[in-house]
Computed example of a mutant assay.
Amino acid sequence: MRVLVVDDERGLTGALRRGLTAEGFAVDVAHDGDTGLDLATDRDYDAIVLDVMLPRRNGYDVVTALRAAGVTTPVLMLSAKDGEHDVADGLDVGADDYLTKPFSFVVLVARIRALLRRPPQVRPAVLAAGDLVLDPAARTVTRAGVPVDLTTRELALLEYLMRHADRVVGKVELRDHVWDGPGEDGNVVEVYVGYLRRKLGRDAVVTVRGAGYRVAG
């Protein structure tokens, strides 16, 4: 899952990038509203973490512009303001959730995962494909009822494949959403697909030659 973090506090964005990466997310960062809006409009994100007070364009204006452009990516707003009218303003302009600073990183991650399970992008709470079941909130996987222990990155790869189980997913798309994009080794997707097959069975992930991969149904 790829997340965009927009906040002008560089210490905070650095910490969030490290923490979210450790949780299995691919993370992009912007430090002002205009850059954040450009990234959110041009690229495909699964969630956006957006500060209210930003240089050049505030968070409210960013969300308003995104919704006007038809971008439905879930947005979690961050703010030091905790008044009820501040929260209401954020939700009214189109944000999906609102978290006040300072906040717990554990809560932030839980809020992001909750956003990934709700509309506007319909996301089931538990993913299933054949006898393979993944619970994103609990971060557990079973096959035929037997628990399977996956690393953070293996889990992220499997989750993305299962969220798109109705189609073949290309290597570039997987790399861009599960890792940090072009800077990664071009073989990293193949390597991790191999890890999944070793743990889940060779039939768990199907290779579609010249197109990519799909999770077996």
Results as ranks from 00 to 15, higher is better:
144 A>F: 02
110 A>E: 15
79 S>L: 02
84 E>R: 14
72 T>S: 13
140 T>N: 01
172 V>M: 07
101 K>F: 11
156 A>D: 10
61 D>R: 14
120 P>R: 09
66 L>N: 11
182 P>R: 10
156 A>G: 07
169 V>A: 10
169 V>W: 09
51 D>W: 08
145 G>N: 05
155 L>Q: 13
150 L>F: 08
150 L>H: 08
159 E>V: 10
71 V>K: 13
94 G>P: 01
164 H>R: 15
135 D>P: 08
59 G>Q: 04
118 R>N: 03
74 P>F: 02
147 P>C: 04
174 L>S: 08
78 L>H: 05
174 L>C: 07
135 D>G: 12
178 V>G: 07
48 I>R: 03
126 V>N: 01
69 A>F: 00
131 D>V: 05
182 P>F: 05
78 L>V: 07
168 V>T: 15
147 P>W: 03
80 A>S: 14
156 A>N: 09
112 I>G: 06
111 R>H: 12
136 P>K: 10
54 L>A: 08
142 T>A: 13
175 R>Q: 13
149 D>L: 11
138 A>F: 01
107 V>M: 07
175 R>C: 05
67 R>G: 08
65 A>H: 10
155 L>C: 02
95 A>W: 06
160 Y>G: 02
151 T>F: 04
182 P>S: 12
107 V>Y: 01
87 V>E: 12
68 A>W: 01
133 V>Q: 02
53 M>K: 09
100 T>E: 04
164 H>K: 08
72 T>D: 14
172 V>K: 14
66 L>F: 09
132 L>G: 06
98 Y>C: 00
167 R>L: 03
99 L>A: 00
118 R>A: 15
101 K>Y: 06
85 H>A: 11
187 N>I: 02
54 L>C: 09
67 R>I: 10
69 A>Q: 13
155 L>G: 13
101 K>L: 08
90 G>W: 10
56 R>T: 10
105 F>V: 13
88 A>P: 00
123 R>N: 10
189 V>R: 12
51 D>V: 07
170 G>D: 15
187 N>G: 11
72 T>M: 12
167 R>A: 13
97 D>Y: 06
112 I>D: 06
91 L>W: 02
109 V>C: 02
185 D>N: 14
169 V>C: 11
91 L>T: 02
136 P>S: 10
124 P>S: 02
82 D>W: 05
116 L>Y: 04
149 D>Q: 13
51 D>P: 06
68 A>Q: 15
120 P>T: 03
139 R>W: 03
95 A>V: 07
131 D>E: 15
115 L>K: 12
62 V>C: 09
79 S>I: 03
122 V>G: 01
126 V>E: 06
167 R>Q: 15
162 M>Q: 07
163 R>S: 09
49 V>W: 02
85 H>F: 04
88 A>W: 03
101 K>Q: 09
75 V>W: 00
93 V>P: 05
119 P>I: 05
171 K>P: 05
159 E>H: 11
189 V>P: 11
76 L>Y: 10
189 V>F: 09
53 M>I: 09
143 R>D: 03
130 G>H: 11
130 G>W: 09
186 G>Q: 12
92 D>L: 10
147 P>V: 04
80 A>K: 06
168 V>L: 03
157 L>Q: 08
177 H>Q: 15
115 L>P: 08
178 V>W: 06
166 D>L: 02
51 D>M: 07
84 E>G: 00
